[in-house]
Design a protein around this nucleic acid. Structure first.
Ligand code: MN
Ligand code: MN
Ligand code: ZN
Ligand code: ZN
Lengths: 142, 142
DNA sequence: CAACAGTTTAGAATAATTATAATGTATTGT
DNA sequence: ACAATACATTATAATTATTCTAAACTGTTG
């Protein structure tokens, strides 16, 4: 399947028609090898600065949220002021570089099974995620 | 040491003078047995509704942030729209109830040591936190 | 073509947080 | 105690991220 057909498929299955704005967003998000961790602002900047296109913020928000709801993107909360999205939708963990504010993937197999010796009655576990905050040695914490 | 003396100490060591507004905030935060997970809004509501006092939002923000910077409170990010604070300042983990939006402590000893088989060169680990999202069985994820 | 459903967009509205500046209160030196 | 100074509180404004709205636009269908 061509990249473009993939994008159209992703959009259709998210309940969205494949318009040129949405396809442009797909290119930025899904046409890459490695995980992409981004904020809406990052994404918007890439589209306007690097690609010279202009897509309204509302469309970016709508499209990203549709992908998130469908499961093509994950949302990650590290701190209150920014919301990150992640193109790696597998179960995985993160390093968070407090110096650069960057997220780095940490695949599941790089973390021994998390052994949870407690359970909440009547509730089932939906996800288990580990966040490892790192910084240069002479640095402040968060 | 009396509770009040403790509060005064906490305030002084956070670089704040013990005023009546700040002592009131201390009472709500630190005069309890169990962990208190709260948003600024929660705290503010407790002060105004339950205690019938009126402390300006700015003072609440300033005081909570001073305590956080001094390490008497921790900040926890679960989702983009709310920022939680935590009176439990030990290293520990959390369950997050997606039905009620409540945080539940999970002490370190209830989670087997997290075995991290990867390291970021030049960076040291500042914290390792596990977030376990739970919900009733017939529920949507996040 | 005409009607319709869905889309994009600019701009307005909301909500959390932070900044400002005036007023109030406590502390210190004399 | 008095004046000078330093620190606090407060209302309000500003900022920022996000969501909402309503008008203009586009593509599809009969
Ligand atoms: Mn913050
Ligand atoms: Mn959200
Ligand atoms: Zn990731
Ligand atoms: Zn806690």
């Amino acid at each position: 399947m061509s990249k473009n057909a993939e994008f159209i498929d992703k959009l259709r299955s998210s309940g969205l028609r494949p318009t040129k704005q949405r396809l442009k967003i797909c290119e930025v998000l899904f046409n890459r090898d490695k995980t992409f961790h981004f904020t809406i602002n990052d994404l918007s900047k890439i589209i306007s600065d690097k690609l010279g296109e202009k897509i309204s913020l509302a469309t970016v928000y709508n499209t990203v949220h549709a992908f998130k709801n469908k499961g093509y993107l994950k949302e990650i909360s590290i701190n209150s002021d920014k919301s990150y999205f992640d193109t790696n939708i597998s179960n995985h963990h993160h390093f968070y570089d407090q110096d650069t504010n960057e997220l780095i993937d940490c695949d599941n197999e790089l973390i021994g099974n998390v052994n949870i010796k407690k359970n909440i009655t009547g509730k089932k576990i939906n996800s288990v995620e580990v966040l490892i905050k790192v910084a240069s040695d002479n640095q402040n914490q968060n």
